[in-house]
Design a protein around this nucleic acid. Structure first.
Lengths: 174, 174
DNA sequence: ACCTGAACACCGTTCAAGT
DNA sequence: ACCTGAACACCGTTCAAGT
């Protein structure tokens, strides 16, 4: 007779996200997820082809989370960058996975949407994509180097970020 | 009686770099390195405390490599960025490790030196550090998103890079 | 001094057998 | 239908025993 699955997909993903926040991506093992969800590791293969698919699902949830955050950030490019960075500070491990786990294109479309809109408003449709790529490259790189400890040798990092935001502004406004 | 070690530190690191280029960081196992160097895995622990230390050594070699490249790139910020990106394209896996493996501060000092000099020349000592961080954040983020496949949804990536370089220029020149 | 086999704990993954 | 124990291949790491 049909048996309902003991752990829903959403439950598994949530468990995964909690583990990531606590022990990083390397702590996200099939066994750890299974245990937290009250099941044995092999059962997870009913929902995910392999660990990589689970990583993608967890990262996908992070991207959706971030999207919501950015949506409610308004139309200002600088403000979007600040919200992006503060999200990264809030969930450093999840943030890392965004650039570590290779995601399908569709998952990346949504979170860039707000920035794309902001850029289109300021520069017109034509330059929007290039401008958005410029901005997103800078902010992503900044946070990543910050996390990598590359900004440890002097100067205030928050000041450097605001400096960058100003430069971004004058870089984008012709 | 004293026995000379069968695999030098340099040989091990070189073996590691070759493996990385072929199979990525995840392929850089103690066993794979040991085999390529003609020794058993436990022997490697004579030279490295653990796998992480080996990863750092390999990444350190990459950073030195990159430094040499950048040194011979001249004093132009845009040119430095181009050289940086082309190095990343040449050794994508090694490049990934630069932001994945957590490195000691000292290892990061050398490769930024040329950019720092270029920025000091253009903006003076005072703004050099902030300007360098702005530039390095952008170019690092750009290449990383390029590798992550974030730039797959339209537009030419090379064009976007040159666009970014122009924006970087007008962003940095007040 | 350096190297090794054997062992341990821990992975991901498969699959036949259970309900 | 879903779940599981057992098994396999593969890790990192330790250590006593070999030369």
């Amino acid at each position: 007779m049909p048996t309902p699955s003991r752990a829903s997909l959403a439950q598994i993903i949530d468990a995964g996200r909690e583990i990531v926040e606590g022990s990083g991506a390397s702590g996200l093992t099939m066994q750890a997820v299974a245990e937290r969800v009250g099941v044995r590791a092999p059962s997870l293969y009913k929902k995910f082809a392999d660990r990589d698919e689970l990583l993608r699902a967890v990262t996908g949830a992070t991207l959706e989370d971030l999207s919501v955050r950015l949506e409610s950030a308004g139309d200002d490019i600088a403000e979007l960058a600040r919200v992006y960075r503060s999200y990264a500070h809030e969930r450093p491990e999840a943030f890392r996975m965004m650039s570590t786990v290779s995601m399908p294109v569709d998952a990346l479309r949504q979170p860039v949407e707000p920035l794309l809109r902001a850029c289109a408003r300021v520069f017109g449709e034509e330059d929007a994509l290039n401008a958005a790529r410029f901005a997103v490259s800078w902010v992503t790189g900044f946070v990543q180097m910050e996390f990598a400890g590359a900004f440890r040798l002097g100067g205030d990092v928050d000041v450097a970020f605001e400096y960058g935001l100003r430069r971004l502004g004058s870089g984008l406004h012709p």
